[in-house]
């Protein structure tokens, strides 16, 4: 079975590295970025199936990044990472085409289940 290609975008380097390794151990192919520009560079070069995107990243706002990704390729599914105070951003993100959101600190089982569903949707389209 082919690996799901995931891009993790969060400015907390250690969080991203640990999460990337946990996903790799579960047989996902993972790229990481710590800011919006880096993420967009990876998306153009090596488009992922699913992006896990923190809404609060430096450089470009997470919502702006989401809109840019959706403009580049509407079929790339985006799962937003958020703290629980960001209800307005979550609503706006869902309206802008995000597939789902997940709250920090995350549950790895919940995240992989959302990634799989998002990938399943991408494959159908």
């Amino acid at each position: 079975m082919s690996q799901t290609k995931v891009l993790l975008v969060d400015d907390e380097v250690e969080f991203v590295l640990a999460l990337a390794e946990r996903l790799q151990l579960r047989n996902y192919y993972v790229n990481t970025a710590n800011n919006a520009l880096e993420a967009l560079g990876i998306i153009y070069k090596d488009p992922p199936d699913v992006i896990v995107l923190d809404l609060k990243i430096p450089g470009m706002d997470g919502l702006e990044t989401l809109k840019t990704i959706k403009k580049f390729d509407p079929a790339i599914e985006v799962i937003m990472l958020t703290g629980h105070g960001d209800v307005r951003s979550v609503e706006e993100g869902m309206k802008s085409g995000a597939f789902e959101y997940i709250m920090k600190p995350i549950d790895i089982g919940e995240l992989t289940s959302k990634i799989d569903k998002a990938h399943g949707k991408r494959k159908k389209e």
Binding site: E12, E14, F15, A18, L19, R22, G83, K104, P105, I106, I108
Partner: peptide, 12 residues
């Protein structure tokens, strides 16, 4: 929340 997330992922 960020620090707790790092701790949780590292322990995980």
């Amino acid at each position: 929340k960020n620090y707790i997330s790092i701790i949780k992922e590292s322990a995980g």
